[in-house]
Amino acid sequence: MASCPHCGAELETPLGCGACLSPLEVETSVDPFALFGLTPSFSIDGEELRTRHLKYSRWIHPDYFAADPELRALAEINTGLLNGALESLEEPLRRADHLLKVRGGPSESEVKDMPQAFLMEVLEWSEVLDEARAAEAGTPPREAAFKLKPSLDEERTARIQTITGLLEPLPESGSEALTTARRELNAVRYLDRALRELESLRLAEAEAR
Protein backbone atom coordinates (compact mmCIF):
# COMPACT_ATOMS: atom_id res chain seq x y z
CA MET A 1 0.00 0.00 0.00
CA ALA A 2 1.30 3.45 -0.94
CA SER A 3 1.85 6.19 1.57
CA CYS A 4 0.99 9.89 1.60
CA PRO A 5 3.78 12.11 0.18
CA HIS A 6 2.80 14.85 2.65
CA CYS A 7 2.39 13.08 5.98
CA GLY A 8 3.54 9.53 5.32
CA ALA A 9 0.28 7.94 6.40
CA GLU A 10 -0.82 4.77 4.61
CA LEU A 11 -3.24 5.50 1.78
CA GLU A 12 -6.65 3.83 1.46
CA THR A 13 -7.25 5.45 -1.91
CA PRO A 14 -4.82 7.04 -4.39
CA LEU A 15 -7.22 10.01 -4.59
CA GLY A 16 -6.26 11.54 -1.28
CA CYS A 17 -5.07 11.16 2.26
CA GLY A 18 -7.46 10.66 5.15
CA ALA A 19 -4.85 11.61 7.74
CA CYS A 20 -3.83 15.04 6.45
CA LEU A 21 -7.04 15.54 4.44
CA SER A 22 -5.42 16.43 1.13
CA PRO A 23 -6.20 15.40 -2.44
CA LEU A 24 -3.24 13.80 -4.24
CA GLU A 25 -2.10 13.79 -7.88
CA VAL A 26 -3.45 10.67 -9.57
CA GLU A 27 -3.41 9.24 -13.10
CA THR A 28 -6.83 9.68 -14.68
CA SER A 29 -6.63 6.14 -16.07
CA VAL A 30 -6.60 4.43 -12.66
CA ASP A 31 -9.19 1.63 -12.42
CA PRO A 32 -12.41 2.52 -10.56
CA PHE A 33 -11.90 -0.42 -8.18
CA ALA A 34 -8.43 0.86 -7.29
CA LEU A 35 -9.83 4.34 -6.62
CA PHE A 36 -12.06 2.73 -4.00
CA GLY A 37 -9.19 0.66 -2.61
CA LEU A 38 -10.91 -2.53 -3.82
CA THR A 39 -9.67 -5.47 -5.88
CA PRO A 40 -11.58 -5.91 -9.15
CA SER A 41 -14.44 -8.34 -8.66
CA PHE A 42 -18.03 -8.63 -9.84
CA SER A 43 -19.43 -9.35 -6.38
CA ILE A 44 -18.97 -6.35 -4.16
CA ASP A 45 -20.55 -5.09 -0.96
CA GLY A 46 -22.72 -2.18 -2.14
CA GLU A 47 -23.06 -0.77 1.36
CA GLU A 48 -19.28 -0.76 1.77
CA LEU A 49 -18.88 0.98 -1.60
CA ARG A 50 -21.30 3.75 -0.58
CA THR A 51 -19.69 4.12 2.85
CA ARG A 52 -16.27 4.55 1.26
CA HIS A 53 -17.71 7.01 -1.24
CA LEU A 54 -18.99 9.25 1.57
CA LYS A 55 -15.79 8.84 3.57
CA TYR A 56 -13.50 9.77 0.69
CA SER A 57 -15.83 12.62 -0.32
CA ARG A 58 -15.32 14.10 3.13
CA TRP A 59 -11.56 13.95 2.62
CA ILE A 60 -11.21 15.42 -0.87
CA HIS A 61 -14.39 17.27 -1.84
CA PRO A 62 -13.65 20.59 -3.63
CA ASP A 63 -15.98 22.38 -1.17
CA TYR A 64 -13.24 22.10 1.44
CA PHE A 65 -10.54 23.61 -0.76
CA ALA A 66 -12.31 26.62 -2.26
CA ALA A 67 -9.71 29.03 -0.84
CA ASP A 68 -6.74 27.48 -2.67
CA PRO A 69 -7.20 27.43 -6.46
CA GLU A 70 -4.58 24.72 -7.05
CA LEU A 71 -5.85 22.34 -4.38
CA ARG A 72 -9.39 23.12 -5.42
CA ALA A 73 -8.68 22.12 -9.02
CA LEU A 74 -7.08 18.88 -7.87
CA ALA A 75 -9.97 18.16 -5.50
CA GLU A 76 -12.39 18.83 -8.35
CA ILE A 77 -10.60 16.35 -10.65
CA ASN A 78 -10.26 13.68 -7.97
CA THR A 79 -13.83 13.95 -6.73
CA GLY A 80 -14.93 13.77 -10.38
CA LEU A 81 -12.98 10.53 -10.73
CA LEU A 82 -14.42 9.19 -7.46
CA ASN A 83 -17.99 9.95 -8.51
CA GLY A 84 -17.38 8.63 -12.03
CA ALA A 85 -16.00 5.44 -10.48
CA LEU A 86 -19.08 5.12 -8.28
CA GLU A 87 -21.22 5.38 -11.42
CA SER A 88 -19.32 2.49 -13.04
CA LEU A 89 -19.36 0.25 -10.00
CA GLU A 90 -22.56 0.83 -8.05
CA GLU A 91 -24.94 -0.77 -10.49
CA PRO A 92 -24.25 -4.50 -11.31
CA LEU A 93 -24.87 -4.10 -15.02
CA ARG A 94 -22.39 -1.27 -15.41
CA ARG A 95 -19.94 -3.03 -13.14
CA ALA A 96 -20.08 -6.12 -15.38
CA ASP A 97 -19.73 -3.91 -18.46
CA HIS A 98 -16.64 -2.32 -16.94
CA LEU A 99 -15.07 -5.68 -16.05
CA LEU A 100 -15.69 -7.03 -19.54
CA LYS A 101 -14.01 -3.96 -21.03
CA VAL A 102 -10.87 -4.17 -18.87
CA ARG A 103 -10.61 -7.92 -19.47
CA GLY A 104 -10.66 -7.31 -23.22
CA GLY A 105 -14.04 -8.96 -23.72
CA PRO A 106 -16.28 -8.13 -26.69
CA SER A 107 -18.27 -4.87 -26.67
CA GLU A 108 -22.05 -4.60 -26.65
CA SER A 109 -22.26 -4.30 -30.44
CA GLU A 110 -19.78 -7.11 -31.10
CA VAL A 111 -22.11 -9.80 -29.74
CA LYS A 112 -25.23 -9.76 -31.88
CA ASP A 113 -26.10 -13.47 -31.96
CA MET A 114 -28.84 -13.72 -29.34
CA PRO A 115 -30.52 -17.14 -28.92
CA GLN A 116 -33.65 -17.59 -31.08
CA ALA A 117 -35.84 -18.45 -28.07
CA PHE A 118 -34.85 -15.27 -26.29
CA LEU A 119 -35.57 -13.12 -29.36
CA MET A 120 -39.06 -14.69 -29.61
CA GLU A 121 -39.59 -13.77 -25.97
CA VAL A 122 -38.52 -10.17 -26.66
CA LEU A 123 -40.96 -9.97 -29.58
CA GLU A 124 -43.79 -11.11 -27.32
CA TRP A 125 -43.16 -8.42 -24.68
CA SER A 126 -42.70 -5.76 -27.31
CA GLU A 127 -46.11 -6.58 -28.70
CA VAL A 128 -47.74 -6.39 -25.27
CA LEU A 129 -45.93 -3.13 -24.50
CA ASP A 130 -46.81 -1.61 -27.88
CA GLU A 131 -50.48 -2.36 -27.30
CA ALA A 132 -50.32 -0.97 -23.76
CA ARG A 133 -48.70 2.21 -24.98
CA ALA A 134 -51.42 2.75 -27.55
CA ALA A 135 -54.20 2.01 -25.02
CA GLU A 136 -55.84 4.29 -22.47
CA ALA A 137 -55.02 4.14 -18.76
CA GLY A 138 -56.84 1.46 -16.81
CA THR A 139 -57.71 -0.68 -19.86
CA PRO A 140 -56.98 -4.45 -20.29
CA PRO A 141 -53.89 -3.93 -22.54
CA ARG A 142 -52.34 -1.83 -19.77
CA GLU A 143 -53.20 -4.51 -17.18
CA ALA A 144 -51.63 -7.18 -19.39
CA ALA A 145 -48.40 -5.17 -19.59
CA PHE A 146 -48.19 -4.72 -15.81
CA LYS A 147 -48.62 -8.50 -15.42
CA LEU A 148 -45.33 -8.92 -17.30
CA LYS A 149 -43.33 -7.25 -14.55
CA PRO A 150 -42.87 -10.16 -12.08
CA SER A 151 -41.61 -12.53 -14.77
CA LEU A 152 -39.29 -9.87 -16.21
CA ASP A 153 -37.89 -9.15 -12.75
CA GLU A 154 -37.41 -12.85 -12.13
CA GLU A 155 -35.63 -13.39 -15.42
CA ARG A 156 -33.39 -10.38 -14.75
CA THR A 157 -32.35 -11.76 -11.36
CA ALA A 158 -31.62 -15.17 -12.90
CA ARG A 159 -29.48 -13.68 -15.66
CA ILE A 160 -27.55 -11.49 -13.22
CA GLN A 161 -26.88 -14.69 -11.29
CA THR A 162 -25.57 -16.35 -14.44
CA ILE A 163 -23.33 -13.32 -15.05
CA THR A 164 -22.08 -13.56 -11.47
CA GLY A 165 -21.19 -17.23 -12.08
CA LEU A 166 -19.33 -16.31 -15.27
CA LEU A 167 -17.41 -13.39 -13.82
CA GLU A 168 -16.67 -14.89 -10.43
CA PRO A 169 -13.74 -15.49 -10.26
CA LEU A 170 -12.74 -13.10 -13.05
CA PRO A 171 -12.08 -15.03 -16.28
CA GLU A 172 -8.79 -14.73 -18.13
CA SER A 173 -8.51 -12.26 -21.01
CA GLY A 174 -9.83 -13.73 -24.26
CA SER A 175 -11.72 -16.58 -22.60
CA GLU A 176 -15.11 -17.76 -23.90
CA ALA A 177 -16.75 -16.81 -20.59
CA LEU A 178 -16.33 -13.14 -21.50
CA THR A 179 -18.37 -13.56 -24.68
CA THR A 180 -21.06 -15.56 -22.86
CA ALA A 181 -21.19 -12.91 -20.15
CA ARG A 182 -21.57 -10.17 -22.79
CA ARG A 183 -24.45 -12.09 -24.39
CA GLU A 184 -26.16 -12.33 -20.99
CA LEU A 185 -25.49 -8.66 -20.38
CA ASN A 186 -27.10 -7.76 -23.70
CA ALA A 187 -30.12 -9.86 -22.71
CA VAL A 188 -30.37 -7.89 -19.46
CA ARG A 189 -30.28 -4.66 -21.49
CA TYR A 190 -33.34 -5.86 -23.43
CA LEU A 191 -35.02 -6.67 -20.12
CA ASP A 192 -34.13 -3.29 -18.68
CA ARG A 193 -35.50 -1.48 -21.70
CA ALA A 194 -38.81 -3.29 -21.19
CA LEU A 195 -38.76 -2.62 -17.44
CA ARG A 196 -38.07 1.08 -18.05
CA GLU A 197 -40.97 1.17 -20.47
CA LEU A 198 -43.17 -0.45 -17.80
CA GLU A 199 -42.06 2.13 -15.22
CA SER A 200 -42.96 5.01 -17.51
CA LEU A 201 -46.33 3.34 -18.17
CA ARG A 202 -46.82 3.06 -14.41
CA LEU A 203 -46.05 6.76 -13.97
CA ALA A 204 -48.39 7.64 -16.83
CA GLU A 205 -51.07 5.47 -15.22
CA ALA A 206 -50.65 7.31 -11.90
CA GLU A 207 -50.76 10.67 -13.69
CA ALA A 208 -54.01 9.76 -15.40
CA ARG A 209 -55.65 8.95 -12.10
Partner: peptide
Protein backbone atom coordinates in the same frame (compact mmCIF):
# COMPACT_ATOMS: atom_id res chain seq x y z
CA UNK B 1 -21.97 9.29 -20.93
CA UNK B 2 -23.19 10.89 -17.72
CA UNK B 3 -26.58 9.72 -16.47
CA UNK B 4 -29.01 12.09 -14.79
CA UNK B 5 -28.78 12.07 -11.00
CA UNK B 6 -25.06 11.28 -11.04
CA UNK B 7 -23.26 12.89 -8.10
CA UNK B 8 -21.19 15.90 -9.19
CA UNK B 9 -18.41 16.67 -9.85
CA UNK B 10 -18.26 13.70 -12.19
CA UNK B 11 -15.72 12.55 -14.76
CA UNK B 12 -16.45 9.90 -17.34
CA UNK B 13 -14.26 8.76 -20.22
Amino acid sequence: LVMRNSTIPCSVT
